[in-house]
Design a protein around this nucleic acid. Structure first.
Lengths: 226, 226
DNA sequence: TCAAAAGTGTTAAGTTTACACCCATGA
DNA sequence: TCATGGGTGTAAACTTAACACTTTTGA
């Protein structure tokens, strides 16, 4: 008997905090829990880690199952390991957050999954410690967003400056001065104005912009800061 | 058979990145691994989570076992869950970092534990993914230190401004202008000058300061930023 | 008396904030 | 023609960065 086998084993799960942005609001994808205890209540999207699966890969798998999307920006939030966190069994859960373009998730798939996009400021009660997970994930997102160009993951490829500003206002939870915001954006060469015009949000039309990741990576001096 | 029991179980471990500060250098406490595989090689201080133990509590327990200290500042770094990370068995490990005053750890206990304080810039090779854990922990520490008064955990209760500056230089990895540094410190009412004088580091003697956590918490306007 | 660390201000550059009006368009 | 969202610049306040010499003491 080796040294390892004298120790206890645990279920290991992943839970995903899936962020989206819609009509000026930051949203989180929630799902009705499908098994006891607390079947039918709202929870994050989760799943158990498999025997031969990296924990990170389990999160990717769960996300793909529930949204149909791959290659999504994900980051680990941390492990939640209280003895009593899951009343059904001892489960250590690793939380991940994902940032995606809400329009890429078909309504078909969300209704099939019994899931819906809750406003982060108006969420139903969640099972177990999922509320805490959301809070941690949101805090991480706020920190991240100040120094890394991750917000673009929540927008379509082409977006207007108004959308971008509303996105940051939603994440940070406070208003931003329009002129100052646009000045800062103008200084970032990797946020490129395209020739396209969005006519959906205004009669006048707004220029559409694109985040150029390559320019961002290449231009050594490029930094994102808000 | 309930829904949980169809899933796999895993060993869950904690690994501690224990930071200390000594003679101008940021240090990490390493230990010779006591069991196979890789027995005798350098590793972080770790241990397995017990059946009825919170993961956070396991980290506290491991730290206390290996340093004799309690009530130490600790924060989770994250879970490391690659299938192949531990060649002995499938182990999901949750890393934590701790900040403590190196002088509080007796040399007796470190020699008994086969451990030593490695300079963060000159560490031996570590087993498994422990090097990555140290890197993540250090990055987290750098981020944290910019906005939270956590550095004091690495110093004795009374410290000189030179010590404090050297600490920040060691954590951040770059030199800081002495006058600018001292100006910023002077603006923080919660870093109090005491009547004590340190005569160890200089003939002239340097004023000893103290971090007053209460003042920091109470004074609502107080913010720490470096 | 000298070596070693402690202590101390000013200025210029850069960054951040506050703030209000005209523009283009479709209904 | 008017309602709606798009787009634009300047000045003051504040923050950061650069920089060099004097003090105290024990050996």
């Amino acid at each position: 008997m080796d040294y390892y086998s004298q120790h206890s084993k645990f279920y290991v799960a992943v839970d995903c905090i899936i962020f989206g942005f819609q009509r000026g609001a930051l949203k989180v994808l929630l799902q009705r829990r499908g098994f006891e205890p607390h079947a039918g209540e709202w929870s994050l999207m989760g799943g158990f880690v498999r025997r031969n699966e990296d924990v990170d890969d389990a999160a990717v798998r769960v996300l793909e199952n529930l949204t149909g999307l791959r290659n999504i920006y994900m980051k680990q939030v941390g492990a939640f390991g209280s003895v009593t966190r899951d009343s059904g069994a001892r489960v250590v859960s690793v939380a991940y957050f994902a940032l995606l373009d809400i329009d890429q998730v078909s309504e078909e798939i969300t209704s099939e999954q019994n899931s819906f996009w809750a406003d982060i400021n108006d969420m139903p009660q969640l099972v177990f410690d999922h509320q805490r997970m959301v809070k941690s994930a949101h805090e991480r997102l706020i920190t991240l967003v100040h120094s890394r160009p991750v917000g673009f993951n929540l927008l379509p490829e082409l977006f207007t400056l108004t959308q971008l500003q509303q996105l940051y206002e939603a994440i940070l939870g406070h208003a931003i001065d329009k002129r100052n915001f646009r000045k800062r954006i103008a200084d970032m060469a990797f946020i490129e104005k395209t020739d396209e015009i969005d006519k959906v949000m205004s009669r006048r039309g707004a220029a559409l912009y694109r985040f150029n990741r390559q320019t961002f990576n290449e231009d050594d001096g490029q930094r994102f800061r808000l």
